[in-house]
């Protein structure tokens, strides 16, 4: 299959935490008005917080997108690598309709932090998606909601000044709890790794470098 051009603007959002954590129940403590129900809620409100991204599809030279389409992108912390020779993690990509990304995420309790572009090509081989990309900084002063076209992005400042590309081979499995599906996907990725040996050596990514949790 012919490679498809990729141009994505990634907006990074961080959860806004108020009145909990170190100051858990601070406001209620001051007034002594905290109900049993509130305490119960706060007790259960323990767990990791994650960065979430909004992705805008941009106009590419070959593509013909009229306007940016936005989607929410979630990537979980990769599972601990045991016997499986690949990285596996929960992923979710959810399209949003006619919504301003900053307002949408503010409503969910997230604040905008930064943005970057990914530009390159996506190759498809059997079930595998092979993404060959570079990360580019947006132009100075560019508003988060604006998605530039590919010519502007290509001339932008690279996040990695060496100009090297990032390559990611991945397969989406509908249900990660189905061992047979996971094994088939793993085998396909390992076959691709063998095929590409000598051209590019695919290795398992650093789990902590792919950690999306808020520290």
């Amino acid at each position: 299959m012919q490679p498809a051009p990729v141009l994505e603007k990634h907006l990074v959002f961080k959860p806004i935490v108020t009145g909990q954590g170190d100051g858990k129940g601070a406001a209620a403590g001051k007034t002594g008005m905290q109900t049993v129900e509130q305490k119960k809620l706060q007790e259960t409100a323990k767990g990791d917080l994650f960065y979430v991204q909004i992705i805008g599809d941009g106009k590419t030279k070959e593509g013909n997108n009229d306007a940016a389409k936005w989607s929410i992108q979630f990537r979980d912390l990769p599972e601990v690598v045991q016997k499986r020779p690949v990285t596996s993690r929960l992923v979710a990509d959810i399209p949003i309709v006619d919504s301003d990304p900053i307002t949408a995420m503010a409503g969910l309790g997230y604040s905008y932090k930064s943005s970057y572009y990914l530009t390159g090509h996506r190759f498809t081989h059997l079930n595998t998606s092979l993404l060959l990309i570079k990360a580019v900084m947006p132009q100075t002063g560019e508003s988060p909601e604006h998605v530039s076209d590919s010519e502007d992005v290509v001339n932008g400042q690279l996040v990695d000044p060496s100009g090297s590309y990032l390559i990611q081979a991945s397969i989406r499995v509908q249900d990660g709890s189905k061992v047979e599906l996971m094994n088939r996907a793993t085998a396909e990725l390992m076959n691709l790794k063998e095929t590409l040996k000598g051209v590019v050596d695919l290795e398992v990514g650093d789990r902590l470098a792919m950690d999306t949790r808020v520290r």
Binding site: P15, V17, T44, A45, K46, G47, D48, L49, F50, I72, F74, D76, A92, I94, L108, G109
Partner: peptide, 10 residues
């Protein structure tokens, strides 16, 4: 599911 499982703190 994302809200219930991964935004449960919020």
């Amino acid at each position: 599911q994302l809200v219930l499982t991964k935004m449960g703190t919020l």
